[in-house]
Design a protein around this nucleic acid. Structure first.
Lengths: 347, 347
DNA sequence: GCAGGGTCTGTGACCGGTCACAGAACGCAG
DNA sequence: CTGCGTTCTGTGACCGGTCACAGACCCTGC
């Protein structure tokens, strides 16, 4: 080893950071007293408190997180696990809102949020390392697949976690979600009530509870009118996939007069395809989305869609994880938040 | 304290996680040898190596990050500091691309990326705690204000950092960026060359190098034709702000025949306002954006805009920080990446 | 004067890794 | 057989915090 001495004496490099011992010496007290002051415990004399505060300011003391984490066996960090390609993670405003909601609750509680994006399968191992390496105290899981290996990891490591969405069969864990099935049924009912007769669906992400439930609800409400020919499946909630799927659906069933898209992004893509095909929305074809995201308002005409309280979902999930950390019994029943159909110009 | 004993005996709670000592005992070796195997050092007998590997698998050992960080005085984490409101952080595809680029380089080098969003001023302190608390080894700074207090913090703590964008006067630090001034001048030149005579600008974020430089370049190229009356300032690169600013500009100068918007999001808002005012784009008014983000393609007509290699900026910034960590001399000159005007339908 | 309680402080061990050093085991040349 | 170098292993100290415990000090009441 001939490299430069990174851990060498202060002769080169950064001036070693002040530790709690430096503060103790400066204040003429012991380490124990300094910790007590810093953690606001009882049984500290005003004189000691003041001396420590002055010393902290003087030596520019900042606590070392790694040391504290090690001693306390906790990190004050929560993992936000998203099982989506990186790009979609940023494009999907729904996930963004959930993230924002979770983040606001967590930072209010002085917790840090660490985004863990599961992109490729190869990432599973990295994620497991993360969750178990004492990096996070708990996890919020978003958009997991029904057969996600993440569930095994969480169970094996017994990391406190809350799922956004309904857990798959056989898995019991705390969760918050919306009634996707009921909401989808409400959409279909609305379309029928406004006189539509040939109603198609762009069904996305059937490997996840949200996608599967939306299709199920759609089928519920349509009853006899349900025609599998009018359903096109697409893997992800994506704009471009929506456009392609709509084109395909039009080719297959040119006579349709309404479409339910499984998300606003998909609906925006569908709108583009409908426009390209010369169909007027809503005159020729009614179009409904899902999420009530910024996509919905950005469309022309603005989308009729299902409002889902994404921000609140994030907040609730964060609260649930924090509650678990405080030792509260995990609420395994899950809680469903209200949704409602927002009628705008497109249907 | 009557709470449940979190750190009590394994009678309740999670079964204490295996440590390196457990592995050593299981393998019939010492801690030292185990570390050597785990870190792939020389001077380990094949027998020992194999015994350790078996023991690791048997006891389910996972290294504790906090302990390792403490001992090594590093975290293998890089902070990605964004000085923007939370919401915009997610909405701005440019920042998203930079983030993606940085993340890909960092995870390839087995580094973790921690997003640090500076929203309110109150956050400055939290961020300082972060950067200094041994939480990250270095930082990538995006969209800093010219007088950002973050620069003081970085300098005081001597955290290796790289800036995306040009540093303000008086600050020397490694950076990567694009020639905003030259690119803006190219846009203005393009507009003049296509016969436009009354050219306005929606100038955003003048408190940042990108915003200020784009306005300066615009003025450079327009020369005598520059009319301050035709410039509307807006605080952030935002869709809604762009729409409002365009409405204001139209009221002020109804005769204008071209507009340069400081970002695609702003341009998309402006397009909406122009349409509402009954102006045809590009027939009545030419419109140019900046960023070549997904907004540009989503508009109708698609936007003429400036392509900026956002992903590459992120990659370069990450590489620069990693190089600093390896002890390479920091490249203080900064590097400018190429941009070019992409001509589409709107101008 | 002393027991008993509350307040305040200092000390040593510990969290789970890494590292420098010391030394054991072995081969080989003189 | 001794000396030397290489390979391999174990030990104790350390990173920078926290915590349990022991004790010092002060006040009060008998």
């Amino acid at each position: 080893m001939t490299g430069t001495s990174i851990r060498g004496m202060p002769s080169t490099g950064a001036p070693r950071r002040a530790t709690i011992r430096d503060v103790a010496v400066e204040a003429g007290l012991s380490r124990g007293t300094v910790t007590r002051v810093l953690n606001g415990e009882r049984y500290v004399s005003p004189a000691a408190r003041e001396a420590v505060e002055r010393a902290v300011a003087k030596v520019g003391y900042v606590p070392n997180t790694a040391a504290r984490n090690l001693a306390l066996r906790r990190t004050h960090a929560i993992g936000f696990c998203v099982h989506e390609p990186h790009a979609l993670f940023l494009e999907d405003p729904n996930i963004g809102s959930i993230l924002l909601g979770a983040n606001s609750v967590l930072s209010a509680a002085d917790f840090q949020m660490v985004s863990i994006v599961i992109d490729s399968l190869r990432d599973s191992e990295r994620v497991a390392r993360y969750l178990s390496g004492g990096f996070v105290d708990g996890a919020i899981v978003v958009s997991a697949r029904q057969d996600d290996s993440l569930f095994d990891v969480l169970h094996r490591l017994s990391v406190p976690a809350t799922l956004v969405g309904r857990p798959p069969e056989g898995i019991t864990m705390p969760w918050v979600g919306i009634d996707n099935r009921g909401a989808a049924a409400a959409v279909a009912t609305h379309l029928l009530a406004t006189g539509r007769r040939r109603v198609g669906m762009l069904a996305a992400a059937l490997d996840r509870d949200s996608g599967a439930d939306r299709l199920a609800g759609f089928r519920d409400a349509l009853g006899d009118r349900f025609d599998p020919e009018l359903v096109v499946e697409l893997p992800l909630y994506e704009y471009t996939a929506g456009r392609a799927a709509m084109t395909q659906l039009l080719a297959r069933a040119p006579e349709l007069d309404a479409v339910f898209a499984a998300s606003d992004a998909v609906a925006a893509g569908a709108l583009e395809a409908l426009r390209a095909a010369g169909r007027r929305v809503p005159d020729d074809v009614a179009l409904v989305g899902f999420d009530d995201s910024s996509w919905a308002l950005r469309c022309d005409p603005p989308l009729t869609t299902v409002h889902q309280p994404a921000r609140v979902l994030g907040e609730r999930a964060a609260q649930s994880v924090l509650a678990q950390l405080r030792g509260a019994p995990a609420d395994l029943d899950g809680s469903l938040l209200e949704t409602h159909v927002v009628v705008r110009g497109s249907a």
